[in-house]
Design a protein around this nucleic acid. Structure first.
Lengths: 350, 350
DNA sequence: CGTTGCGACTAAACCGGTTCAGTTGAACTG
DNA sequence: CAGTTCAACTGAACCGGTTTAGTCGCAACG
């Protein structure tokens, strides 16, 4: 009969039920549960007790309507699926966010998109629908127009990574450079003179930072990179870049990759080609993923901490949305983790 | 001065602004934009035109308050971080969900938790806060109490996988068995007689299904499994299980793993031990991930389609939340993809 | 020509909270 | 003892939509 039968449970109590049961006005219930002044301690306790007894939970939509706070934060992922699926960064990053949000009664609203247009639409929808109190801004780009977009939409944001200019939002930075630098020094110390870099997507700032750190470190040791190849961070391009390096006229003795998946794909190509790792070629990854520990040989890599990064970003964004301002955060930098995919440079054939 | 300055943009127009500008009552605006009867075509067009001109978007919180529909779906991930991060299933699954939700103006609310208690809390919070219209139920277990929980909470759900009994919710199934069966036949056809299985977490139904399919297929060929080892799906346990199989008294000539990450970890262990793949040992994964294509040797694996799975689940859940009912869906089953990690069984030493 | 029926539209209640201007009564002040 | 002050509390407006009872004008009907 009734067009939409109540799902199952008896109708949930509302604030008026609580008010009636406690013998006070609903306004006072609101004050009491929100710990605002103007409520006697005795009454506050009574209200809380009654609310608890009735199992009342304030309606979030109603609260949102009057306060325009959603208690939700937004994350938009724009990435080719092939990359998202292989990249362990995001699951760990999101898990880190959740560790913070869950405790604060917040929730993460996720949007996965494939194109720049869809990404912009996602942010605009967040704003138009008042879905979120703030948003994470990942995978920063040069002159990233999303910064202006979010400012214009009035969505507070936190930048995940170091922006390449002054920005109206706080940033949470985990410096890639020291790890990459250490990796290069490690290789040079092992006698390598011909080192190549398989970089990531140059549109992304962190790919540039890694590349820059690589080039600077090589130069600091008085060397010149044997080659630097840009990719899209995918295993496929990591593999083809490796093949290209093998086929090139000056073959490197060591390759530094911009992420672990590409390093693993590279490892595959090298082994298929019969190139011994690390005897004939040293390989360095980037991320410090679980996977790197289980390859053959285990991967020397640069470990960052995506989970802590996510947690720090969430804390910062939370502070920003509640207090209106938040300081930028600098996390401990990425660190080199030496395993068995790197070894002494092969001696000249004699 | 003002305690909370308006973020930036001028105050967004509301339905009354539109009503005033169109010279009608706000009730009529509501009827017009929701395509309900009782509005003349001329008026409807005028209202839509005015709404568009003012850039009005109905407030979702307000709409939610009166209709108690949130236009959001919930996904709770309970998994050890080590597994989530290495497992490409979820990113692809979520991307599949998003392809459907985005077009429908829906949004995905994500919760990543580490324990069963936290998981239950997450669902209860979804219900208490009226955060979502429905939820996905992944990683089904035997006698899964979450089914009752969701029913009791009144949250419509869709089961991702085949439940092990009658369930009050529709399910979206992608059958693992045919792929695993094909893998076993493939190995037996190659002459293997000693085949082992490194299974997943036996608490999860899909791990059981894969194990069962393995055992049945082996039996169907008149053989007995050399060994069946349970794990938690992590690379670490995939590696240690492989090491144990190598050290066992009857060493298999082929191993079928319950997911690709474990197979890859297994590859690493085998190669570290000097066991040639596939000459001395054949290896089969499960998932058909990008990663499997880039190992050395490329992995024979069983491909499922997590993205399509996510999309189908989203369509089903959407139908369930809007029309109140939805039929279960059976997707094309998982399929064997033969690569170079499987080969003829090693002949007896002669 | 009075009634009925109907499409188009309005006004007001409603969803469930928050917020704020007032009211009340008791304690304090001079 | 009248006047002031203040904590505690109430009532009503408000957030921005949806929904429904009811009004109005007009055409069709007997």
């Amino acid at each position: 009969m009734s067009p939409r039968p109540p799902r199952e449970a008896p109708a949930a109590p509302t604030i008026v039920d609580v008010a009636r049961a406690a013998g006070v006005s609903k306004g006072l219930v609101s004050l009491a549960i929100n710990d605002r002044p103007g409520v006697s301690e005795a009454t506050r306790l009574r209200v809380l007790e009654v609310a608890d007894r009735l199992g009342w939970r304030p309606s979030l939509p109603a609260r949102t309507l009057s306060t325009s706070r959603t208690y939700a934060l937004g994350l938009v992922l724009r990435r080719d699926l092939r990359i998202v699926a292989a990249d362990p960064f995001y699951p760990a990053f999101m898990a880190g966010i959740e560790t913070v949000l869950t405790d604060e009664g917040r929730v993460l609203v996720l949007s996965v998109v494939g194109s720049a247009e869809a990404e912009e639409r996602a942010y605009r929808t967040f704003a138009a629908d008042r879905r979120v109190d703030g948003a994470f801004l990942n995978d920063l780009r040069h002159d990233d127009h999303r910064v202006d977009l979010l400012r214009e939409l009035g969505i507070p944001a936190v930048l995940v990574g170091r922006p390449d200019g002054p920005a109206p939002f706080p940033s949470v930075v985990l410096d890639d450079a020291p790890g990459v630098t250490a990796a290069v020094h490690h290789l040079v110390d092992l006698g390598h003179r011909a080192i190549a870099h398989v970089g990531g997507d140059p549109a992304l700032l962190h790919a540039r930072h890694r590349r820059r750190a690589f080039e600077d470190a090589v130069a600091a040791r008085g060397l010149v990179p044997t080659a630097v190849v840009d990719t899209d961070f995918s295993m496929a391009q990591g593999a083809s870049a490796t093949a290209a390096l093998l086929a090139g006229r000056t073959r490197p003795t060591a390759i530094v990759y911009a992420n672990d998946p590409m390093a693993i794909a590279g490892l595959g190509v090298l082994q298929e080609a019969g190139t011994q790792v690390p005897d004939a070629m040293s390989v360095v990854g980037f991320d410090g993923t679980e996977m790197a520990r289980h390859t053959h040989p285990p991967l020397t890599t640069v470990r960052s901490d995506p989970q802590e990064w996510g947690a720090a970003a969430a804390r910062t964004l939370l502070a920003l949305t509640t207090s209106g301002s938040a300081a930028s955060v600098e996390l401990p930098p990425a660190q080199l983790v030496v395993a068995r995919s790197t070894g002494p440079a092969p001696g000249p054939t004699d």
